[in-house]
Measured scan of single mutants.
Amino acid sequence: SDEEKKVRDQAKRLGVNTEQLLKWARRQGDEDLVRIVERLLRS
């Protein structure tokens, strides 16, 4: 999905993997991002 591509691009920009991005999203309190990243991790 578009959202998932955006998440992957953001992880690349930050230089982190998906698990690290999830931690980062939780720290930001970004519920939408957390949900998308969790979906990516499960897929």
Rank of each mutant, 00 (worst) to 15 (best):
residue 21 L to C: 08
residue 11 A to Q: 08
residue 24 W to N: 01
residue 43 S to Y: 14
residue 3 E to N: 13
residue 31 E to D: 10
residue 43 S to R: 13
residue 22 L to W: 04
residue 6 K to F: 13
residue 24 W to P: 01
residue 5 K to W: 07
residue 22 L to H: 01
residue 27 R to W: 14
residue 10 Q to H: 09
residue 11 A to D: 03
residue 39 R to K: 12
residue 3 E to S: 10
residue 4 E to I: 12
residue 23 K to A: 14
residue 13 R to M: 07
residue 17 N to R: 05
residue 4 E to K: 06
residue 27 R to V: 13
residue 36 I to D: 01
residue 28 Q to R: 07
residue 37 V to K: 00
residue 10 Q to L: 15
residue 40 L to T: 01
residue 6 K to A: 07
residue 14 L to H: 05
residue 4 E to Q: 07
residue 8 R to A: 10
residue 30 D to W: 14
residue 30 D to H: 12
residue 19 E to N: 08
residue 25 A to L: 14
residue 13 R to T: 05
residue 31 E to T: 09
residue 25 A to Q: 02
residue 35 R to P: 00
residue 28 Q to F: 11
residue 4 E to W: 15
residue 42 R to K: 14
residue 20 Q to T: 06
residue 27 R to Q: 15
residue 4 E to S: 07
residue 17 N to T: 14
residue 34 V to W: 06
residue 3 E to C: 13
residue 27 R to Y: 07
residue 8 R to N: 05
residue 20 Q to R: 04
residue 9 D to G: 04
residue 20 Q to F: 06
residue 7 V to R: 05
residue 28 Q to M: 13
residue 39 R to Y: 08
residue 20 Q to P: 01
residue 19 E to D: 09
residue 26 R to P: 01
residue 39 R to H: 08
residue 7 V to Y: 06
residue 6 K to L: 13
residue 26 R to K: 14
residue 11 A to W: 13
residue 29 G to H: 04
residue 42 R to V: 09
residue 41 L to K: 01
residue 31 E to L: 14
residue 18 T to M: 15
residue 7 V to H: 04
residue 20 Q to N: 06
residue 42 R to F: 11
residue 36 I to Y: 08
residue 15 G to D: 02
residue 15 G to Y: 10
residue 31 E to I: 12
residue 15 G to M: 04
residue 29 G to Y: 13
residue 39 R to S: 07
residue 4 E to M: 13
residue 7 V to G: 07
residue 41 L to H: 01
residue 9 D to T: 05
residue 37 V to M: 05
residue 35 R to C: 02
residue 15 G to F: 10
residue 11 A to I: 14
residue 19 E to Y: 13
residue 2 D to I: 10
residue 37 V to P: 00
residue 6 K to Y: 14
residue 1 S to P: 08
residue 7 V to K: 03
residue 33 L to M: 02
residue 43 S to K: 11
residue 18 T to E: 07
residue 33 L to I: 04
residue 22 L to S: 00
residue 28 Q to G: 01
residue 13 R to L: 12
residue 26 R to F: 10
residue 17 N to F: 13
residue 6 K to C: 15
residue 32 D to E: 11
residue 9 D to R: 03
residue 11 A to E: 09
residue 21 L to D: 00
residue 14 L to E: 03
residue 10 Q to F: 15
residue 13 R to P: 03
residue 35 R to S: 06
residue 36 I to Q: 05
residue 39 R to W: 11
residue 33 L to N: 00
residue 32 D to Q: 08
residue 18 T to N: 06
residue 18 T to V: 15
residue 21 L to A: 01
residue 43 S to N: 12
residue 12 K to L: 12
residue 17 N to E: 04
residue 36 I to W: 09
residue 8 R to C: 13
residue 23 K to E: 15
residue 21 L to E: 00
residue 22 L to Q: 01
residue 43 S to Q: 13
residue 29 G to I: 14
residue 7 V to N: 03
residue 34 V to Y: 04
residue 43 S to P: 10
residue 35 R to D: 03
residue 5 K to T: 06
residue 43 S to T: 13
residue 6 K to R: 12
residue 32 D to S: 08
residue 1 S to R: 12
residue 24 W to S: 01
residue 9 D to W: 10
residue 22 L to I: 04
residue 22 L to T: 00
residue 9 D to L: 07
residue 16 V to H: 10
residue 15 G to I: 07
residue 30 D to V: 11
residue 19 E to K: 12
residue 18 T to D: 05
residue 39 R to D: 07
residue 29 G to N: 09
residue 15 G to H: 07
residue 32 D to L: 12
residue 34 V to S: 01
residue 9 D to S: 04
residue 5 K to P: 03
residue 36 I to N: 02
residue 8 R to S: 05
residue 42 R to N: 09
residue 16 V to D: 02
residue 15 G to A: 04
residue 28 Q to I: 13
residue 41 L to E: 00
residue 26 R to T: 07
residue 38 E to Y: 03
residue 24 W to Y: 03
residue 9 D to C: 04
residue 41 L to I: 08
residue 5 K to D: 07
residue 41 L to Y: 02
residue 5 K to S: 08
residue 19 E to W: 13
residue 17 N to H: 07
residue 13 R to S: 05
residue 8 R to E: 07
residue 5 K to Q: 10
residue 26 R to A: 08
residue 41 L to A: 02
residue 30 D to N: 13
residue 30 D to K: 07
residue 27 R to N: 14
residue 7 V to W: 09
residue 12 K to M: 09
residue 14 L to M: 09
residue 34 V to A: 05
residue 11 A to N: 04
residue 40 L to G: 00
residue 5 K to R: 09
residue 14 L to K: 05
residue 36 I to T: 03
residue 21 L to N: 00
residue 1 S to I: 08
residue 34 V to L: 04
residue 7 V to P: 04
residue 33 L to W: 03
residue 19 E to F: 11
residue 6 K to W: 15
residue 37 V to S: 00
residue 25 A to K: 01
residue 24 W to M: 03
residue 4 E to L: 13
residue 10 Q to C: 15
residue 43 S to L: 12
residue 22 L to K: 01
residue 23 K to F: 08
residue 8 R to Y: 14
residue 39 R to A: 11
residue 35 R to F: 04
residue 17 N to I: 13
residue 21 L to V: 01
residue 5 K to F: 08
residue 39 R to P: 00
residue 14 L to S: 03
residue 21 L to K: 00
residue 29 G to V: 12
residue 30 D to M: 13
residue 32 D to Y: 13
residue 27 R to D: 15
residue 5 K to M: 08
residue 37 V to T: 01
residue 9 D to I: 05
residue 28 Q to A: 07
residue 14 L to C: 06
residue 25 A to G: 00
residue 29 G to D: 04
residue 25 A to S: 01
residue 9 D to V: 03
residue 22 L to G: 00
residue 13 R to H: 06
residue 2 D to A: 09
residue 26 R to Y: 13
residue 3 E to A: 13
residue 41 L to N: 01
residue 43 S to A: 11
residue 16 V to W: 15
residue 30 D to R: 10
residue 12 K to D: 08
residue 34 V to G: 01
residue 28 Q to K: 06
residue 14 L to P: 02
residue 22 L to Y: 02
residue 8 R to L: 14
residue 8 R to F: 13
residue 10 Q to Y: 15
residue 9 D to A: 09
residue 5 K to A: 10
residue 41 L to R: 02
residue 27 R to E: 15
residue 23 K to R: 12
residue 1 S to F: 11
residue 40 L to N: 01
residue 1 S to M: 10
residue 34 V to F: 04
residue 42 R to P: 01
residue 24 W to G: 01
residue 26 R to L: 14
residue 26 R to H: 08
residue 17 N to D: 08
residue 31 E to Y: 11
residue 41 L to M: 04
residue 33 L to R: 00
residue 38 E to V: 06
residue 5 K to L: 07
residue 42 R to G: 11
residue 23 K to W: 13
residue 10 Q to D: 03
